[in-house]
């Protein structure tokens, strides 16, 4: 295919909360990115409800396809491929997207591409700027905290991972203790900017010679602090708690990321995933990198591309399109899909 050719991918993302359909040109340009969020209907349950999620996905996905094509100003006949998140995620939710993608691929005789959700979060960077390789990404979300090394645009290797809770999950869990609604990340981030660091929470695995994370001890320390205060009838300043908690999370993430950059010498660093929306983390990481690696290209996708969306799947799928990494109609959901660990 020539440089001037337009390759249009219709992409689906239904791995968890969101139902999203997008049209992406050449893996870099968003023609449309329709997202239907269900967070509101979930708030009273305290989280994701798979069965509610599945039903919701089915109801709106056909509507979203029409909208995505219209907004992009294209028809089915203009498309070059159909891409869909195959995992990780909730099996019921994933299957909705996969079924829709298969239906379109079959009806219009288009190649089908099954894409890794985490690759999507990382490749959202392509929608912002040109990624140069080797690249390194920190993926932080409700279910993931991973440092991913990419020697080429097609290779993903985990060099560091959480040993227990994901960073985003720890926000939701301490939020629960403070009576903050799910998802708690944004609220805690805001509170953290109004308090001061008065509690000395642990920073786990800082000295260990690896790139792994652990947030379970921090969660326990936080809960113990709050329970102790309750027992003796003391009221703690919630903003100070939030600041102290966020400092601990951010410090570990920044420390390990900087260490990995020093060793792997990437040409581009990408901050990806839902927690990349966290202002405290963005700020601290950007400052540390500017100071220590002033020449490193840093891409942090805008907030609207940090959460789950189909455009990021279209961006990741484009590389698979170039690699001719296609799936047949037996494509199935892979709820536990993970990148290989380095050297695995």
């Amino acid at each position: 295919m020539s440089e001037t050719e337009q390759n249009l991918i219709l992409a689906f993302e239904t791995s968890c909360d969101e139902t999203s359909v997008s049209v992406v040109k050449n893996g870099t340009e968003i023609l449309s990115n329709m997202i239907a969020t269900q967070v509101k209907s979930h708030q009273r349950f305290g989280g994701v409800v798979p069965e509610v999620a599945s039903r919701h996905h089915v109801e709106i996905i056909t509507m979203l396809i029409t909208e995505a094509l219209e907004k992009a100003g294209v028809t089915y006949q203009d498309l070059d491929a159909v891409a869909v998140t195959k995992g990780p995620g909730l099996v019921g939710a994933l299957l909705i997207g996969i079924s829709a993608a298969k239906a379109v691929a079959m009806a219009y005789n288009l190649p089908l591409i099954g894409t890794n959700h985490i690759a999507g979060h990382i490749k959202a960077a392509n929608l912002v700027d040109k990624v140069e390789y080797p690249a390194l990404a920190l993926v932080v979300s409700g279910g993931h905290t991973e440092l991913v090394s990419m020697k080429t645009p097609s290779d993903y290797e985990i060099i560091g991972d959480t040993r227990d809770d994901a960073a985003g999950e720890s926000y939701d869990k301490v939020g629960r203790v403070m009576g903050i609604n799910y998802p708690a990340g944004k609220t805690i981030d805001e509170m953290a900017h109004q308090g001061s660091e008065t509690f000395d929470f642990p920073r786990a695995m800082m000295k260990e010679d690896n790139y792994d994370f652990s947030f379970s001890g921090l969660k326990s320390a936080f809960i113990n602090t709050v329970h102790h205060a309750d027992q003796v009838g003391e009221t703690l300043d919630k903003n100070d708690l939030a600041t102290s908690f966020q400092s601990a999370v951010v410090e570990v993430l920044v420390h390990k990321t900087v260490k990995a950059i020093a060793e792997y010498q990437p040409k581009t660093f990408i901050l990806a995933g839902g927690v990349a929306a966290n202002q405290g983390l963005r700020q601290a990481l950007t400052e540390a990198i500017n100071q220590q690696f002033p020449d490193l290209k840093v891409i942090i996708p805008p907030l609207r591309l940090c959460g789950d969306n189909a455009a990021m799947i279209g961006a990741a799928a484009y590389q698979q399109f170039l690699d001719q990494d296609f799936s047949d109609m037996s494509l199935n959901a892979e709820p536990g899909l993970e990148f290989p660990y380095e050297g695995e």
Partner: peptide
């Protein structure tokens, strides 16, 4: 590593002597 299943609801570990599913119904 065994990671918390709270966000993902189910985590599947398929490579041991028996498959292990770690599930959290909290949500």
């Amino acid at each position: 590593p065994i990671k918390s299943p709270t966000f993902t609801i189910v985590r599947e570990y398929l490579k041991g002597r028996l498959p292990l599913f770690h599930m959290d119904m909290y949500r």
